[in-house]
Amino acid sequence: MTELKPSTKNKWWKHPDVKKTFIFWLIFTPAIGIFGTQFHVLSMPDPASEVMGGVIGLMRLFTWAAAPVAALVFAICATALTSSRHYGDNPPADADHQISNSPRANATWIVVSAMLCLFALVTGLVVLQKEGDALHEENAIHVNVTGQQWAWNYDYADGARSEVLYLPVDVPVVFHITSKDVKHSFWIVEMGIKMDANPGYTTETAVTPNKIGVFNVRCAELCGLLHAYMQNKVHVVSKADYEKWLADRSALEARS
């Protein structure tokens, strides 16, 4: 709260506007933090992977980091609005407070925002690094994902093919994604991963599902007429169920 130095001889923090701003700030910070995190967390689907848990954690963290700053801006707004308002067709007298600069406020503001920026960057990089490592997981299963206007299909080892994604729980999986025509984007909503499917190239992303259930794949890049319908389910099942399903699918594929 070292923003602005009043012109009075008193210590700056004794000014009623500073006190008022401080009180507003004390109220707004937790309000914004709680509302902001709840708004996000309650809207987002329950995580079905650690990656998604990480995303939710990041949102929480960033919201709380941003809350004091947002609260300060809104507190100053609230103070200004509650202190001196003038209605009418002619202006009020000029304000008494004529400070047009405050090096201390400028410096504080810039340093604090730079630190918050650094904080956001570092947290992001840490998570990014972890996700990069997931691509090289040794015991991962590999699934080739093919997008085509307007359906997905999946190729597994042993020649199994499917239009629905089946994944074993707690086993890392690496997706190799490509497209037959235009750009699509392969998004497993509840697992928090997304990667574009580009014609002529193969892109990769990885995840470890950690919850048994049925989740959603949606295409997240406008891909033409039936883009809205380019979505499907993901079934995360136990290891045994997965093996059985895979064997069934291989057999189905193998018959002539």
């Binding site: 602005l4 001196s84 202006p91």
Partner: peptide, 12 residues
Amino acid sequence: LVGTLWRGRLWM
């Protein structure tokens, strides 16, 4: 912006 609002006389 907030610095300018600070202790200004708001003409609504």
